[in-house]
C-alpha cells in the first residue's frame, strides 16, 4: 500500500483488535450447541409422532370421533415439525462458497420460496378452524360432550389464530428481507458495470 491515506486508514482499522481467547471460548460453546440442535428438532418430531400415534390408536380403540380429530391435529403438527427438521438439516449443507452476488441471488430465491411456503401455515390455520366447526357439529349431533368440544375448539381456535398471526408477521419480515436483498443486488450489479 503506497498511499498515505490508505496507510492511515489501515492503521486506524487494524488498531481495533479482538479478544481471541474469548472468541475461542464462545465459538467452542456455539459449536456444542450447534451439534445438539438437530437432536432437539428430532425430539419434537418424535414427540408429535408419538402423540399422533397415541391419539390415533385411542380413537380406533374407542371409536371416538373427537379423539380422531385430536389425532388429525397432531398429524398436522407432525408435518409442520418434520418440515422444520428437514429444513434445519438442509440449511446445514448450504455453505457460503458462492460469490457475494451469487449468494445474494441464492438468498433472494430462498426468501421467495419461504414466502410461497407460507400457504402451508394458512392451510394449517384453516384446517384447525374447520376442526373447531367439526367438533361443535359432533357435539350438536350428540357424538361429543359439549365440555370436551369447548375445550378442544378453544385449543384449536387459539392455535389457528396464532398460526394466522405468525404467517402475517413472517410475510412482512420476509418482504423487508427481500427489499434489503434487492437493494444489495442492485448495488453489486451497478458496481459490476462501473468502468474506471
Amino acid at each position: 500500500m503506497d498511499d498515505v491515506f490508505l496507510d492511515g486508514l489501515k492503521r486506524d482499522w487494524r488498531s481495533d483488535t479482538a479478544d481471541i481467547a474469548h472468541l475461542r471460548k464462545w465459538v467452542a460453546r456455539r459449536k456444542a450447541r450447534l451439534r445438539a440442535a438437530p437432536w432437539g428438532n428430532l425430539a419434537s418430531v418424535l414427540l408429535m409422532g408419538g402423540l399422533f400415534l397415541g391419539f390415533a390408536l385411542a380413537a380406533f380403540d374407542r371409536r371416538d370421533p373427537v379423539t380422531a380429530l385430536g389425532a388429525f391435529a397432531y398429524l398436522v403438527a407432525l408435518v409442520a415439525v418434520s418440515v422444520g427438521f428437514v429444513k434445519s438439516l438442509r440449511n446445514r449443507f448450504v455453505d457460503s462458497q458462492e460469490t457475494p452476488l451469487d449468494f445474494l441471488r441464492l438468498h433472494r430465491r430462498l426468501i421467495a420460496a419461504a414466502r410461497r411456503s407460507l400457504w402451508g401455515a394458512r392451510c394449517a390455520a384453516i384446517i384447525l378452524i374447520a376442526l373447531c366447526a367439526a367438533v361443535w357439529l359432533m357435539a350438536a349431533a350428540g357424538y361429543a360432550r359439549p365440555g370436551l368440544a369447548a375445550f378442544q375448539s378453544a385449543t384449536w381456535g387459539a392455535a389457528a389464530i396464532l398460526t394466522w398471526a405468525w404467517q402475517i408477521w413472517r410475510r412482512r419480515g420476509l418482504d423487508d428481507e427481500a427489499d434489503a436483498c434487492d437493494r444489495m443486488i442492485a448495488a453489486c450489479e451497478e458496481a459490476d458495470r462501473e468502468k474506471a
Binding site: 457460503s96 458462492e98 445474494l104 438468498h107 426468501i111 420476509l174 428481507e177 427489499d179 434489503a180 444489495m184
Partner: peptide
C-alpha cells in the same frame, strides 16, 4: 456472505 445475511436478518 455471512455479513450480508446478517444485514438481511436484521432488516427482518
Amino acid at each position: 456472505n455471512r455479513g450480508v445475511e446478517h444485514v438481511m436478518k436484521e432488516m427482518r
